[in-house]
Amino acid sequence: MEHNQVEIILYGAEQLCPSCVNLPSSKETFEWLEAAIARKFPEQPFKMTYVDIHFPPAEPEKQSFAQKVIEEDMFYPVVVIKDKVVGEGNPRLKTIFSELEKYGYKAV
């Protein structure tokens, strides 16, 4: 089954969220997640995007979601695939992998 390249967006911040002490930083989580997805789904393209919730890019959807993370006190990093939140605070690989499989990714 052919699939389009899915964009996985990780919303985070330099500073850890108050409830996320002892967890890796958003940037560390981003790098760990990118490596884990690449290992699980080799040679299947995906796009990882990091969005700093305090300095989001000039894209309206990303700006409004970054604002939502702040206003709703979500535990970040927040992982989003196709507008669906698939991880908050300490994202679970299993949840993220199963969401990617819905878009045609095949675990190796």
Rank of each mutant, 00 (worst) to 15 (best):
Y76G: 07
V78C: 08
P18T: 14
E72A: 10
H3R: 14
P45D: 09
P18N: 13
P56F: 10
Q5P: 02
V69C: 09
Q44G: 02
K84C: 08
T29D: 04
P18W: 11
P45V: 02
P24E: 13
C17P: 12
A107E: 02
V6E: 02
E99S: 09
P56L: 06
L100D: 01
H54V: 08
C17R: 04
R39S: 13
E61W: 15
V51T: 04
K40A: 11
Y50F: 15
I8M: 04
L23T: 12
I81W: 01
F46V: 05
E7M: 09
E14S: 12
P56A: 04
Y76R: 06
L93M: 10
T49C: 03
R92G: 08
Q63Y: 05
E99F: 03
F65R: 00
I8Q: 02
M48V: 10
G89L: 06
V108F: 01
A13R: 15
P56K: 07
V51F: 01
K40Y: 01
D83C: 07
A13Q: 14
N4M: 10
E59Y: 10
Q44K: 07
T49Q: 13
E2V: 03
R92F: 08
N22R: 15
Q67T: 14
A58V: 07
D73M: 13
E99I: 04
E72W: 06
P60L: 12
E34M: 13
C17D: 13
A36N: 10
I53L: 12
E28T: 11
A38V: 04
Q15F: 04
K82S: 13
I81R: 04
W32L: 13
I53V: 12
R92Q: 14
V69P: 00
V78F: 03
E31T: 10
V51W: 00
A13D: 11
P91C: 08
K82Y: 06
Q44W: 06
S19A: 14
I9A: 02
P57V: 06
G87Q: 10
I96T: 03
T49A: 04
F65I: 03
L23W: 07
K27A: 11
F65L: 05
D73K: 15
G104L: 03
I53S: 04
V51L: 02
K68E: 13
P60W: 03
M1T: 12
E99D: 13
V108A: 03
L93K: 05
Q67A: 15
S98V: 07
E2K: 14
F75C: 13
D73Q: 14
I70M: 13
I53N: 02
E28N: 11
V78L: 07
V51C: 01
M48G: 05
E14M: 05
G87S: 10
S25F: 09
